[in-house]
C-alpha cells in the first residue's frame, strides 16, 4: 500500500499530462519508469489527472503486455515466444526454465529476485533460441545452457 506522500509524488510525476491530449500511455510509461511497475494507487492518480475513470486506466494497464502491475524482479529473464526461436527449441527451454526456477511466466521467485516474462520477437533471430537477461540478448542457447544460466542466476549449482 502506498501512503499519501507517495500519492503526492505520483501526482507530481504526472502533472505535465493533460486530458484528451494523447497522454495516457506517456503518463503510464513515466510512472513505470519511476517505480518499475504501475501501483494500483497510481492508476487512481492518473485517472484523476486525465479525467477518465479508474476502470478505464486499469483496462489500459492490463491490456498492454509491457506494463507491469507487480514490482519487477531484480533480474528479469525474458523468454522469446517468436517463431524462429520456437523452431529452434524455445518451448523446451521454457519448460526447463519454469521447472528450474519453479515459477511460471509473469511470476517472480521468492523475494522478487528473479522473474520470468513472456516476450515478443524483436528480430534478433540469428541468435535463436534466446533469452534476454535484463534486456541483454543471450543466445543461441541449448536447453542445458539455459538451465545452467538459470541455476547461476538463482545462485544454485
Amino acid at each position: 500500500m502506498l501512503d499519501t506522500e507517495a500519492t503526492l509524488e505520483i501526482a507530481r510525476l504526472v502533472a505535465e499530462f493533460k486530458p484528451d491530449d494523447a497522454d495516457l500511455l506517456p503518463a503510464l510509461h513515466k510512472v513505470q519508469h519511476h517505480y518499475g511497475y504501475i501501483p494500483r494507487e497510481a492508476m487512481a492518480v492518473v485517472a484523476k489527472q486525465l479525467h477518465v475513470s479508474e476502470a478505464h486506466v486499469y483496462g489500459a494497464v492490463t491490456f498492454y503486455a509491457e506494463l507491469r502491475t507487480i514490482p519487477p524482479p531484480e533480474t528479469r529473464i525474458d523468454w522469446c515466444s517468436g517463431p524462429a526461436c520456437r523452431l529452434k527449441g524455445s518451448e523446451r527451454i521454457r519448460r526447463a526454465l519454469e521447472a528450474t526456477l519453479e515459477i511460471g511466466m509473469e511470476e517472480n521467485t521468492p523475494g522478487d529476485k528473479l522473474g520470468l516474462h513472456l516476450a515478443q520477437c524483436n528480430g534478433t533471430c540469428d541468435y535463436a533460441p534466446q533469452l534476454w537477461v535484463n534486456g541483454k540478448v543471450i543466445g543461441p542457447l541449448t536447453t542445458s545452457e539455459a538451465i545452467k544460466l538459470a541455476r547461476d542466476l538463482k545462485g544454485t549449482k
Partner: peptide
C-alpha cells in the same frame, strides 16, 4: 515519438489510433 507498450493489435490502424487516443488499443 510515441512509445507503445506491447500489443499486437496496436499495429492495426484503428487499434493504434485508439492507443494514441488514451484508450486500450482496441
Amino acid at each position: 515519438i510515441w512509445r507503445g507498450a506491447g500489443s499486437y493489435v496496436c499495429g492495426e490502424e484503428s487499434g493504434l489510433l485508439a492507443s494514441v487516443n488514451d484508450m486500450r488499443g482496441m
